[in-house]
Design a protein around this nucleic acid. Structure first.
Lengths: 233, 233
DNA sequence: GACTTTATTAAGTAGGTACATATTAATATT
DNA sequence: AATATTAATATGTACCTACTTAATAAAGTC
């Protein structure tokens, strides 16, 4: 008697992954049908399906109806990043969080911001600049635009007290988000507020959100020198 | 007669998400039990479960056995990035890909690399520097260390022809990966190979992989100025 | 009251059945 | 031979049932 307990879908996932790692199933190979794997391992097809679902999502295999399952030829590295509220991020590092409003005004959107939102006409939006600090040292400088058509309430928020970052996350869920990372040299304003010298390489996290088709906000969060963003798991 | 067809789990997911967006379920609120939602919407509990599974994965809700489902108070922005083989990335932009080996030698691991791998002792690893080009212009400069204990075959690969990047992805699946992004100023080597002037801000993608506990490779991919990394979806 | 034990609850999982859907393969038609 | 039609097939989905597990609440004990 094998006497072994029933297989869970994570067991199946691990077994299949192991076989891919040890090249039983090599890149480009076609895997057996779910049903055959189920039969071989002694579990239900639904269990194999659940396992495959995850392997497919992490980019290790590719599945097609009728076509079957195939090990990806060029597996991409898929990394997930959590971008929390800055206050949370600072507090979770065990640092003291502070926040300073730098400026707040209604300005016409420049071309760069229009491009981010994908809009053609210039509109007036709330333009907010603010600084997040960790242990009294500059941590992130944010330059944000908020569309007052989709988010008129932002005008009643005292941004000297509550950061737009936090207020928006709490009060303005989005249905679509675009996130991108790039590097820029510190200059003028960013250098000044982050207390660094002009020219220093800074990581920028740019986030733009929409609700349906309507723009909500677009922010460039410029991190202080040395900032690293690392993937979860 | 409503005459409507049966609900799919994506319908349920969209319905729940809509309710979260329109604040029927506000941040911090507890959602009804899966079973009650199923009853209300007229579908099976498993269908609701499948929908919740995705909402939970994207970080919109939090689920606990017995505790039920709760809308996250501070929803994080969760972004997923695919980091393909550089050749693929270049080709998908519609550019011509080229590759140049810059150097290849067996060196002792410096502290920084040991830290990335989480190892205490200095070991000799294969140290490879290479340049990826798009349309004859520098695209990514990579500085890579490969552990020859876990990956002895790399020593037989002609890295002048095939990039270590590509060979490893094809031949050395990993079980764990660490990915991080940061910005650095171009200097000396990186400036020279990327044909940019020293001081320019460059985005660095650092990737370290293991198979089980054993280090495979760690690479710093330094992108040419202007490079942006954007999330999938 | 503080602590431990027990029961309850809601999500999580496994199995089975039936059917839907997207592709590919085979066949028929022009 | 090229094209359109039809059949076959593997994954995807929906529903049901039964059981498991983790977390919480309630009850009991010192």
């Amino acid at each position: 008697m094998t006497g072994q307990t029933r297989l869970s879908w994570t067991d199946v996932r691990d077994e299949i992954r192991a076989r891919i790692l040890n090249r039983t199933y090599a890149p480009g190979d076609k895997l057996p049908r779910d049903e055959d794997i189920a039969l071989e391992l002694g579990c239900a097809r639904t269990t194999v399906h659940r396992a495959m679902q995850e392997l497919s999502q992490t980019g290790l295999v590719e599945r097609k109806r009728k076509g079957g399952t195939q090990v990806k030829i060029d597996p991409v590295t898929r990394a997930t990043f959590d971008i929390p509220i800055t206050r949370r991020e600072v507090e979770q590092r065990g640092s003291k969080y502070d926040y300073q409003l730098i400026s707040r005004s209604l300005d016409d959107t420049p071309l760069s911001v229009m491009a981010r939102f994908g809009i053609q006409q210039t509109v007036q939006m709330l333009h907010v600049k603010a600084l997040h600090l960790a242990d009294n040292r500059p941590y992130i400088f944010e330059d944000r635009w908020v569309d007052t058509r989709s988010t008129p309430d932002i005008l009643n928020v005292d941004l000297k007290v509550e950061s737009a970052n936090e207020w928006l996350v709490r009060n303005k869920p989005y249905s679509r988000v675009d996130v991108r990372f790039f590097a820029m040299n510190a200059e003028g304003e960013s250098a000044e507020h982050l207390s660094t010298k002009a020219g220093d390489a800074l990581l920028v996290i740019e986030r733009t959100t929409w609700i349906g088709q309507d723009p909500i906000t677009s922010v460039q969060a410029v991190a202080a020198p040395g900032y690293q963003l690392s993937a979860v798991n």
